[in-house]
Design a protein around this nucleic acid. Sequence first.
DNA 1: ACGTGTGAAGTCTTTCACAGCG
DNA 2: CGCTGTGAAAGACTTCACACGT
Lengths: 222, 222
Amino acid sequence: MQSDDAIPDVVIKRLTIYARALYQLHASGAATVSSSELAAATGSTAAQIRRDFSYFGGFGTQGKGYEVGRLLEEVKRILNLNEQWGMVLIGAGSLGGAVARYNRFAENGFVICRIYDRNPERIGNRLDGVTIEDVATLRETVSREQILIAILTVPASAAQWAANLAISAGVKAFLNYAPASILAPPDVRVHDIDPVAALQSLTYYLSPGRSDEVEPSSRTTA
Amino acid sequence: MQSDDAIPDVVIKRLTIYARALYQLHASGAATVSSSELAAATGSTAAQIRRDFSYFGGFGTQGKGYEVGRLLEEVKRILNLNEQWGMVLIGAGSLGGAVARYNRFAENGFVICRIYDRNPERIGNRLDGVTIEDVATLRETVSREQILIAILTVPASAAQWAANLAISAGVKAFLNYAPASILAPPDVRVHDIDPVAALQSLTYYLSPGRSDEVEPSSRTTA
DNA sequence: ACGTGTGAAGTCTTTCACAGCG
DNA sequence: CGCTGTGAAAGACTTCACACGT
């Protein structure tokens, strides 16, 4: 009741986008950036950016803008990006394999420490340098190592089961690649990555009837 | 068209989640579903679901609920899922390879027709049965074949360039795997998939220093 | 009885617009 | 001056709660 200054989720999401742009600005040697410049780089608006940073007190200088290095550090601090995060990958099929080999995780401080599967043919194999273990051993190991993040790359039919197991081991955050809704208690956060769902929401905005042998009479112009 | 005012984007996004649940319900033989049952299956609320469908006129029967097959068909119609959508993949590196081999696209009516790269060493190779072509030929082919959807799997530094090229060829929707913000005109829609950004917004909610740091004061809801 | 569809209310988010500071 | 930070207004979305059809 005392500090109901909860930051909206959507602000946190935008912070990650600002961080991405600030990394680039920093690398390119820019010293300062204004809210309108950052807006142009991220597809946001200047007012939005100023409001977003004002939730954390504001990091700018009037008349000048924001100091790029300082702002990036502040964002990293807010998002807890100054430490390495250990993660567990559940599901070592083709999707799990592709995710395990995605270099940007480790480059950004997210390290896959453990990989689990339930298929005996996969257990014992290595994937990107990590041995695939029996998912039956997940709870004991993950809770002992206090891993808080799990990546779900299991079939949809196993997703809730795997999530429940991870939650019972203390996992508090999921990156869910399974095409299924995960039900979890409020202190556990789930971020879904479903490329097919993403495409399906894009096609809503496209008029039907293109490609194959459609006459060139119907076009979009939306 | 049918609508007098625009449907919120967030409603369209939820429609894809409802579709996922309805597919499963339909496959499991369920004849009807109530808004509260669908809410339980998708992590939404009953009122939300009724409101969402009411944007399209409402598909239910009072006292009974929704007929699963009918509702699924309505959602598919709204989202334009009754046709095959051709897509172009730009960037045939390791990420592009993984995306090209992701089976769920074709299973859901999204077919990668063309694959482009700018690297001569890759051009001519095949990826999941499709020959990698020189990106210099993209504009001519994509505009002729009226492909409206592009998947971007290029490095961040090439993302805007590739997007501009695709837009000039008539592409109206992007699934953007590059960790960069794409700037596009308002009639072009971009959906970003950035797993690192997703993790970064998850770690905001995790207290840093997981092996110690048990602050008895600050608790999230349990 | 039961569960939908929807005005109305409530809550959350964005945008405006400008005071104030470097 | 230019640009931030922020009250206030506007707008968007969610939830409530109940009339109504089956």
